[in-house]
Amino acid sequence: MVIKLNELPEGSKAIIERVELPEGLRERILGMGFIPGKMVEAIKKAPLVDPTVYKVGNFRVSLRSSEASKIYVKPIGPIPLVLCPTNVMCRIVALNGGRRFLNNLKSVGIDVGRRIKILNNEFGRLSMEVDGKVYTIGRGMASKIVVEVLR
């Protein structure tokens, strides 16, 4: 499962897959160590959300999302449900958000440890299957459900 580097949540790690920047920038980025196969970590977003500091090797670089979105990575470990591709079996590892939201999820049986699969993720809505039942939620909610992909 491959996402854009700018979508990688703060604190998450990923393996670099491809660098699709224009030639001039690509050489610089490669020279800084953003090389396919290497690990990258999103350290911190700026107070105004963009840019983000990434760690590559023992080196920290700030990239705007306009550049980071041209670098494709494969996340290691849990990611928000909203970034998950469709029809991939995942397991919920954490639920973020307020108490009411958590209670709502739990009341319909969505909880840590459950297996979850996205059926459709379009137009800001996301339908998913949990234990054979289908639910539809918004992208905001889906970003608070953290999952790991099952192989």
Partner: peptide, 8 residues
């Protein structure tokens, strides 16, 4: 292009 690629 005016990229902002700055080392910290």
């Amino acid at each position: 292009p005016s990229p902002f690629i700055v080392e910290m």
